[in-house]
Amino acid sequence: MARNKPASLEAALGSQMPQEAAHESATVVQHPASAATATKPKNYEQVVAYVPTQAKKRLRMMCIEHDRDLNSFIREGIDLMLAQYGQPSLKEFEGK
């Protein structure tokens, strides 16, 4: 036996919905994370690196064990590599 789907939520709820609630407009709430990404400094760029799955899992465990975020570990690694090749550190690039 096939049932016809109601055309709208109001029709589906029928008389269960109070009349005043049916005419209220919804309030849009912005998620805090989306507001934080909009204020990112313009002198930063995203870099993508592909690592083996096991290395990614190990990095996540290190983040938990040391109470740090992944970005801080990656920036530390980049600083070590820049120093090894005689390049300025990330902090020196931030001042420019």
Rank of each mutant, 00 (worst) to 15 (best):
F93T: 04
Q16T: 01
Q19Y: 00
V28P: 04
L90D: 08
C63H: 09
K56F: 05
E45Y: 14
E65M: 15
T37V: 15
A36H: 11
P18M: 07
P32C: 02
I74G: 06
F93E: 01
S25N: 06
T27S: 14
E24Q: 10
L82H: 02
A38K: 07
P52I: 10
S25R: 12
V48Y: 12
K57N: 15
A33R: 03
Q84T: 07
R75T: 13
E24L: 11
Q19K: 00
L9N: 07
L9H: 03
Y85E: 00
D69Q: 11
M17P: 01
K42P: 03
L82G: 04
A49M: 10
L80N: 12
V51I: 14
S34W: 04
P6R: 03
Q87D: 00
E20S: 02
H31R: 05
R3Y: 12
M17F: 01
A35G: 08
A49I: 11
R58T: 14
R58C: 10
M61Y: 15
V51K: 05
N71T: 10
K57R: 07
A22D: 05
I74H: 04
M17H: 03
A21E: 15
Q84K: 09
K40T: 07
R58M: 11
N71Q: 04
E65I: 14
Q54G: 01
D69K: 13
G86V: 00
A22P: 04
D67S: 04
L70P: 05
V29D: 08
G95D: 15
A2L: 11
G95L: 13
G77S: 02
S34N: 08
L13A: 01
N43E: 02
L90I: 11
A83I: 03
G14K: 01
V28Q: 10
Y85P: 00
E45R: 08
E76D: 09
F73Q: 09
R58Y: 13
D69A: 12
A36L: 12
H23Q: 13
P6N: 06
I78K: 02
E76H: 07
T27V: 13
Y44H: 06
L59E: 11
D69E: 09
E45C: 09
N43L: 02
Q46D: 06
